Computed example of a mutant assay.
Amino acid sequence: MTNILRLDASIKPAGSVSRRLTDRILARLTAAHPAASVTSRDLAAGLPAIDAAWIGAIFTPAEARTPEQAAIAAVSDTLIAEIKAADVLVIGLPIYNFGTPASLKTWFDHVARKGETFTYTEAGPQGLLTGKRAIIALSSDGTRFGSEIDFASGYVRHMLGFLGITDVDFVAADAMVFGPEEALAKAEGQVDALAA
Rank of each mutant, 00 (worst) to 15 (best):
D23R: 13
L26G: 14
A27H: 08
A27S: 10
R28H: 14
R28Y: 12
A31C: 08
H33G: 02
A36C: 08
A36N: 06
T39Q: 08
S40V: 00
S40D: 07
S40Y: 09
S40W: 00
R41C: 00
R41S: 00
D42I: 05
L43Q: 04
L43F: 04
L43I: 04
A44T: 09
A44E: 11
A44R: 10
A45Y: 02
A45M: 02
L47D: 01
L47C: 09
I50A: 00
I50V: 13
A52P: 02
W54R: 01
G56R: 02
I58T: 06
I58F: 08
I58V: 12
I58H: 10
A62W: 14
E63H: 04
R65G: 02
T66Y: 02
E68A: 13
Q69P: 04
A70S: 05
A71L: 08
A71I: 05
I72D: 01
A73C: 00
V75T: 14
S76R: 01
S76I: 03
S76W: 05
T78D: 15
L79F: 03
L79R: 02
I80Q: 14
I80S: 13
I80D: 14
I80P: 06
A81H: 02
A81N: 05
E82M: 02
I83C: 08
K84I: 11
A85K: 00
A86R: 06
A86Y: 11
A86Q: 08
V90Y: 15
V90K: 14
I91A: 14
G92E: 09
P94E: 10
I95S: 13
N97S: 14
F98I: 11
G99P: 00
G99S: 04
T100A: 14
A102I: 10
A102Y: 03
S103Q: 14
W107L: 05
D109L: 12
H110M: 07
H110L: 15
H110G: 12
V111D: 13
V111T: 04
V111G: 11
V111A: 13
R113E: 07
R113D: 04
R113V: 13
R113W: 07
R113T: 04
K114L: 11
K114Y: 11
G115H: 01
G115F: 12
G115W: 09
E116F: 15
T117K: 09
T117A: 10
F118K: 10
F118Y: 15
T119S: 03
T119R: 09
T119Y: 02
T121C: 00
E122A: 15
A123Q: 13
G124F: 08
G124R: 01
G124M: 12
G127E: 09
G127P: 01
L129T: 04
T130G: 07
T130I: 09
G131S: 01
K132H: 05
K132E: 09
R133I: 06
R133V: 04
R133M: 07
A134Q: 03
I135R: 01
A137I: 03
L138Y: 08
S140P: 06
R144W: 13
R144V: 15
G146Q: 03
G146F: 04
S147M: 11
I149H: 12
I149S: 14
D150V: 04
D150H: 03
D150Q: 07
F151V: 02
A152N: 09
G154L: 03
Y155D: 10
V156A: 06
R157L: 12
H158L: 15
M159E: 10
M159S: 06
M159V: 06
L160R: 02
G161L: 12
L163M: 12
G164R: 06
I165P: 00
T166A: 05
T166N: 11
T166R: 05
